[in-house]
């Protein structure tokens, strides 16, 4: 292999490795969405789901635009508040935010290490959900940046009329 080709291949390899490392670091930094449901009855279903938080914004990007735009339109008035809450909760110390305890059920919503954690324990099942706050903020920002359904429709009509 000529020296120049080897240099190019080496450069491409370095860029790819760098991109992989940066992607890995991003995924590690954002953490993961954990969902665990354990049935207490014999033969009941146990579900365990771990999704890298970075997959959330990607899923939003891949999902049908029409549905996402409609959802964004519904949520739009609350998105700045959700974004602000996620950001501020990230700055707060870890601890319980809401606890409900009765003889049949225990529910805990807490902030734990950069994630919002929901634990439910009742006679039927135990549920654990953990959502990274960074992901909540990023998704809220993504939805906020989306044109709403009517505006998008209007733009599409204008574009088709201009043709």
């Amino acid at each position: 292999m000529p020296a120049s080709a080897a240099a190019v291949a080496g450069g491409v390899g370095t860029v790819l490795l760098g991109a992989a490392l940066a992607g890995g670091a991003l995924i590690y930094d954002m953490g993961g969405v954990w969902v665990s449901v354990k049935a207490k009855k014999p033969g009941g279903d146990n579900i365990r789901l771990v999704v890298p938080a970075a997959a959330g914004p990607v899923a939003l990007w891949l999902a049908p635009k029409k549905n996402i735009r409609e959802a964004a339109k519904e949520a739009r008035p609350w998105l700045p508040a959700i974004k602000a809450a996620a950001e501020e909760l990230g700055n707060c110390p870890d601890g319980p935010l809401v606890e409900v305890t009765n003889p049949h059920e225990k529910v805990l919503i807490a902030k734990q290490g950069g994630a919002l954690v929901i634990d439910v324990d009742n006679p039927n099942e135990t549920v654990h959900v953990s959502v990274p706050l960074k992901m909540v903020g990023i998704i809220a920002a993504q939805l906020e940046a989306m044109p709403d359904a009517e505006a998008a429709h209007g733009n599409a009509v204008e574009a088709s009329e201009s043709w």
Partner: peptide, 13 residues
């Protein structure tokens, strides 16, 4: 029901 509810809200939030 014998229920206990606790809510802790940071004022900064």
């Amino acid at each position: 029901k014998a229920e206990i509810v606790r809510v802790n809200l940071p004022l900064s939030l």
